[in-house]
């Protein structure tokens, strides 16, 4: 579903690479967790996947489409929710959702059904006619999630999705992520909440200072680390 091959990225004229020659693959039907300390290169990697940044080298393929050769084709395959979804403050929630449905060309019946369903799940139905500027951080995140789910993407990409969500919304999101993958689609998300990553991810990648230091299932990571400890302990050992 998602293949990264030798991706590197340097900002400005800094000599230090934000992302340094990373390669991994996300398979159809799996939830893939991307973990690492602050400044490790998680968000930069995600931004390159979702075509917000161009890599200096390497290739990214989304559902068989090279995201640099066919940018638009690749964009149709995924949806993305950033860690701090800055949305147009003067726009009403419902206008934002209509906009998302329009740009992804979602048929009328499907968009209505999906939006109603997710508005119910995230409990923002009553606020959907308010300007986004009046939303709390968590509500903005919920709205961005609904907007991202409107076109039922092949690949659902989330940057720190649990930050800002209330416990019920977090629970619901995890459920949605699993259901999404059960239908043969994939979820790729970055997180600091290692407990969540350990529980819901089929496979995990650990990044440190721009380099990928581990990829695999929890069992594989434990085996390589030679311990049966939690992901948190293994993560601390690997990233220190």
């Amino acid at each position: 579903m998602l293949i990264l091959e030798h991706i590197s990225k340097t900002y400005g004229n800094k000599n230090e690479k934000a992302v340094d020659d990373i390669s991994f693959e996300v398979y159809p039907g799996e939830i893939f967790g991307f973990v690492g300390p602050n400044g490790a290169g998680k968000t930069t990697t995600i931004k390159m996947i979702v075509s917000l940044l161009a890599p200096n080298s390497g290739k990214i393929t989304i559902n068989g489409i090279d995201n640099q050769a066919d940018i638009l084709g690749a964009k149709k395959q995924f949806s993305y929710v950033p860690d701090n979804p800055e949305l147009f403050e003067k726009i009403k929630g419902i206008e934002y959702l209509k906009f998302m449905a329009d740009v992804y060309q979602v048929p009328a019946a499907e968009r209505q059904e999906r939006i109603e369903r997710y508005l119910d799940i995230f409990e923002i139905k009553n606020a959907v006619n308010d300007p986004i500027g009046s939303f709390s951080h968590g509500m903005k995140q919920k709205l961005a999630l609904v907007g991202a789910l409107i076109h039922d993407p092949q690949l659902f990409i989330l940057d720190e999705p649990m930050v800002g969500l209330d416990p019920k919304a977090s629970f619901e999101l995890k459920k949605i992520m699993r259901e999404h993958c059960d239908r043969g689609r994939s979820v790729f998300f970055s997180t600091h909440v290692l407990d969540v990553a350990e529980k819901i991810c089929d496979r995990i990648a650990i990044i440190k200072k721009g380099k990928l230091i581990e990829v695999g299932t929890m069992a594989e990571i434990r085996e390589k680390a030679g311990s049966q400890e939690s992901l948190e302990n293994i993560f601390l050992e690997l990233t220190e």
Partner: peptide, 18 residues
């Protein structure tokens, strides 16, 4: 200033126009 709460039919009307 908040907007008026929309009924299901009103939401459908807004969202239904592709």
């Amino acid at each position: 200033k908040k907007g008026k709460q929309l009924s299901g039919a009103q939401r459908s009307k807004v969202l239904g126009k592709k």
